[in-house]
Design a binder for these strands. Structure first.
Lengths: 206, 206
DNA sequence: CAACAAACAGTCAAGCCTGTCTGTTTTGTC
DNA sequence: GACAAAACAGACAGGCTTGACTGTTTGTTG
């Protein structure tokens, strides 16, 4: 029988990828406390030995997953932003895009890590900086997509508020899925944003 | 030696209270995954036997803690609202009050339960309705404190958005404590709210 | 092709968590 | 005071998790 020959680098890369994706899937489906290394290896279809070869400890696996996840989130955000329509309903579409991201499975996984990091120093040291990066990227994307002029006073804060708002909506969505409520809130928010970001609008009094 | 005689009802009540508070404290300090029944009993200074007498299973303990926590949160909100100053900076003070609540230890505990509930059906069945109650109470309090007229279109959504915003800010605060950023955002948001909720403001175009 | 290193597989022990169990003390009731 | 019931105490077993360990296969290199 002929066995296909695969270089080591490739084998290793694929295996690590499988494990990281399985880790994220476990976080989404079973949460942080339900994500055990055995479960991850089973889910990935990887023997426990192989898993421990690539990630000697659970920390190694999880910290790598944190980095992986922030990569994926950044990419998803950029892709979603690229597919945004132009024209009238642009602002509303941007909000929808952001809200979609903050209710997606990758966000659920990130949320698990985020909350777990609160009481885990090692995890926090990894999650903190990376989440900050994703946050900044989201801010930049939102700014771009909205065509907002950050040099104007208050604009920066409004865009940040927008991101914090969708994060709050995403959190609420995790247990009670009320898309209708979210839609109404975002409709209203879009109007507020349009009014405040409009270049022709008079600058607000101090 | 003289032993003070304590009625059973009282003993039982005190013991349960101690255990529930210890549970919340463990959630705050060690997170959901770090909150084991043994740790709770140690923290409460209660023997494991006594713990299992009052709460036969971990579910019983946790579900009772969920109810306890929603009680505490509701009370804290009411107290904070009662201490709100009148006058000029009222709106900003309301936002501060809400933001304070959503960065408090009780919120951290609730967040742990909230996130854990996402992947735990039994917990979700308990957390869902109670969190909704707290949410509604917060909404009512915010509405009251802001003197907002919910019958006007859009007002309800703005108040809800405010609550979702502070929830998002609270989540962000759990790992990176940037009070400065939060302050700026709330400053800006207070202005927006004042402009939108002012009864004299012209109704917005549809 | 020979020797070495990386990748992979599976077993095992130590530790923790949960909940059951038996036994003791305190309280309520007759 | 005696008896029942509630409250309290602590030991124990079963299951799960983690990481160390030994052994096997596959790729690489001279």
């Amino acid at each position: 029988m002929t066995t296909t020959r695969v270089p080591q680098g490739e084998r290793s890369r694929v295996m690590r990828q499988r494990l990281l994706e399985a880790t994220v899937e476990c976080l989404v489906e079973h949460g942080w406390s339900g994500t055990s290394t055995t479960l991850v290896s089973q889910r990935a279809g990887v023997s426990r030995g192989a898993q421990l070869h690539h990630f000697p400890s659970k920390s190694d696996l999880v910290l790598a997953a944190v980095a992986h996840l922030s990569e994926v989130r950044g990419q998803e955000l950029r892709v979603a932003a690229a597919g945004l329509p132009e024209g009238e309903r642009r602002t509303r579409a941007v909000l929808e895009m952001l809200a979609d991201h903050f209710t997606s499975p990758v966000f659920a996984a990130a949320l698990e890590l985020w909350v777990a990091a609160r009481t885990d120093a090692e995890l926090r040291a990894a999650v903190g900086p990376l989440e900050q990066r994703v946050g900044r990227e989201a801010h930049r994307i939102a700014l771009d997509a909205l065509g907002a002029d950050e040099s104007r006073p208050g604009v920066r804060e409004l865009v940040q508020a927008t991101l914090d708002l969708v994060r709050g909506l995403g959190l609420a969505d995790t247990i009670s899925d009320d898309a209708a409520r979210r839609r109404r809130i975002l409709d209203r928010w879009a109007r507020t944003l349009d009014a405040a970001l409009d270049p022709d609008a008079a600058a607000e009094a101090p």
